[in-house]
Design a protein around this nucleic acid. Structure first.
Length: 173
DNA sequence: ATAGCGATTGACT
DNA sequence: GTCAATCGCTATA
């Protein structure tokens, strides 16, 4: 772990926000799992889904309004060779093109849930000085059949249109 | 104490 | 296209 730096460009996300979003873990109020969503924005929220996959989220908004952004795909930048080992996959486009894939590639699990993402330690986000020229697409969120009709209809999944490193649910051109 | 299930993936037909 | 994996969280009792 120590000395290894993984990085990537975020290319696909989903938003989960508030008490009316029945797809959001926090919509009924704080629980053991999603307690970190009831903090000020800037914390890391990681949980295990299907007993198999860790999901990486960044908490946003105020402590009175639970919200987080699920990181669904990144374009690998640093640590690509180690990611390939972690994933047992060679194709770079398959390394981090899904929320469960990227946590395995980056060696992120729920032990990291609750750490700060704003100090440049362990896990953090950097804003590029200059935003690249790109087209942002949006659509309904994936894998939330359990949510009500409103929540399912909200187009809160965002992705870089035509990017090679997005998940299978995005157009590649 | 325990049933039911999931913000997914990979293997297989 | 179908389906198993796998375990912690949530709700209910």
């Amino acid at each position: 772990m120590a000395g290894i730096r993984y990085s990537g460009i975020i290319v696909e996300t989903e938003a989960y926000r508030g008490f009316n979003d029945t797809a959001c873990h926090a919509h009924k109020g704080p629980t053991t799992r999603c307690e970190v969503m009831f903090r000020e924005g800037g914390f890391v929220y990681v949980y295990l889904t299907y007993g198999v996959h860790n999901m990486l989220n960044l908490v946003t908004e105020k402590s009175t309004f639970p919200a987080a952004v699920l990181i669904r795909a990144v374009e690998p930048v640093d640590g690509v060779e180690k990611m390939a080992v972690n994933r047992n996959v060679k194709n770079v486009e398959q390394l981090t093109s899904g929320p469960g894939k990227l946590t395995k590639a980056f060696d992120i699990d729920r032990n990291l849930s609750g750490i700060v993402a704003t100090r440049g330690e362990h896990v953090w986000v950097e804003i590029p000085k200059e935003m690249p020229n790109m087209k942002i697409g949006s659509s309904e969120r994936i894998g939330i059949d359990y949510a009500n009709e409103d929540a399912r209809s909200w187009k809160w999944r965002y992705f870089i249109y035509g990017n090679r490193f997005v998940s299978k649910y995005c157009p590649k051109k």
